[in-house]
Write a protein that binds this DNA or RNA. Sequence first.
RNA 1: GGCCUUGUAGCUCAACUGGAUAGAGCACCUGACUACGGAUCAGGAGGUUGAGAGUUCGAAUCUUUCCAAGGUCGCCA
Length: 614
Amino acid sequence: MEVIKQLKASISESIKQVYGVDYAPENLTLSQTKKEFDGAYTLVVFPLTKALKKAPPVIAEEIGQALVSASDWIESYNVIQGFLNLVCSNKFWDAMMSELAAPIPTLDIGKGKKLMVEFSSPNTNKPLHLGHIRNILLGWSIAQIGKATGYEVIKTQIINDRGIAICKSMLAWQLVGQGETPESSNTKGDHLVGKYYVEFEKLFQQEYKTWQDSETGTQVYQNNKNEEEESEAFFKRYKNQYFNEHSVIGKNAKDMLLKWEAGDTDTVALWKKMNGWVYKGFDVTYQNLGVDFDHLYYESETYLLGKSVVEQGISSGIFYKKEDGSVWVNLEDVGMDHKILLRSDGTSVYITQDIGTAQQRYRDHGMDKMIYVVADEQEYHFKALFATLSKLGEAYADQLHHLSYGMVDLPTGKMKSREGTVVDADDLMAEVIDEARQSAEERGGIEGQDEDSRNDIYRKIGLAALKYFIIKVNPRKRMTFNPKESVDMQGTTGPYIQNAYVRIQSIFRKLDDVRLDGSYSYPGSPEEVETELMMQLAEFTNVLTEAMEKYDPSLIANYAYAVAKSYHRFYHDCRILSVEDQTLKLFRLGLSDATARTIKKSMMLLGIEMPEYM
RNA sequence: GGCCUUGUAGCUCAACUGGAUAGAGCACCUGACUACGGAUCAGGAGGUUGAGAGUUCGAAUCUUUCCAAGGUCGCCA
């Protein structure tokens, strides 16, 4: 905000004038004055004492005097301890209002730079769930924030389309599916494939159970159990080993994976068919959620990429090979451990393909900056990945960032797919939209709209509730998703913010012919609710900058709420359409318009749409 | 056990980067202009910021020691 910059510059000049000391404007701490004191902005003078060598109250007094005589923006001041409270003049508020009336500019922080954001990155064996929603909202939002700060943004994901998981679904479908398709069963493709993933688990459990009672099973139990260990506890622990060493259906699944890797025609055809179903399903979910991607990467195409890089790393001595053939990188110099890069059988692990994918992406897009949106359980992995890429001397290695976020819990505890407590993304969206519909029908207010418009409004409100509920929480923190609270529409919620916007639209609909020409002059002195709102709006670019620096959309969410709250108060206290004084009316209309634009922009950065009615 | 994250009102979250008497919402209680849209606004009650010690003009924030929860730690992704 230029007005604030100029205000700081004036303070800096006053310091120069009184003390002959150069104090850079950007080093001044100028905050909003607390409500219980008189003034708009407060200069905290404690930090100045060293440079100016006087007691805080004296400095405050002297700067205050100098400012009042030098600047026509400062009407008066008062000093409380080391705080210099500045009371601003109408000229100041008019200047600020004029600046607020201008279109919100794109910042130039990322000007000329490419930013790639990876988010969502699902497995193709089951539908998206609540955890993905947090991931997607964060990724989408950081991409929008990137754009708003001047970056050219490439939204991407890596789709985990291969591996044992999808083979399980494929096998189960072959065994018990009887040719079922999304069309034949009228089921969304991703849900259908997810169903067969569950089917596999059932078949496996049946087989396992039978085996447990067999001679071999009991023998294994007797030979391997810990002291006093019950059979149930043992077999729970032994499950993975059973899958790998004894299970017939497990062997079949693994064989399928081998066939897939060998390029077996039938297997690949089935794989393509079922993944195709899943992608169709994902597309619908993404569309309903209002997100899209610019460039997709598939694990099936990238999983081999890292190998040659690793082999080069061995010959150049960056990595080393153990006797058993496995390849390692030593990360002790950056405070980490040794990390495996290739298995002893020469196959690649998770990090291997990530190395390859990173290189591929850099070749494709030459990005200056890359953000991976992935849950915090993978922090160690990304530290190791970045350190390894750095050792390889990759140009972009120090511009990689893991946007790590806490997992989503339910009031009943963790989400666990095995226990069926996973909240499905499609179901969840349908529920919040339905909730919005009920709420709107009770209230009335949009009966005049046709059905399509009404449905569109319900969708916007419901999704706003859901998205805001999730995005308002600091990403770093683990969050509890309370389904009841997520559909709240009062208080700190998406619909509350939408309501402020809708009120403003309603005002402007009632105006016939008013032109806001961008110049404002307040007759008398603005009300406190008005100056508070203006100051709030003036913070937008600061908040946006900070959100980008910290990779934290929740800052924008909290900001949007603060603006909406200030507006609701203003709206309640101040007449707008019915005021006689035309300049005052224009001022308030200008303020309303600036508020609407700021709210809309902020919420757009979070992937939340604004309705015109609600 | 090592490392990382978190701990703030009954609950869900803030706190302008070390600033004034720690703020909102939900829930509870009391009110609001014969409503520019009440999905709103105002008020009440609710706190030893997990505990202790330290650093300084000043600490929820920095240091340190504990306590609690979660994550992670060489061939899962």
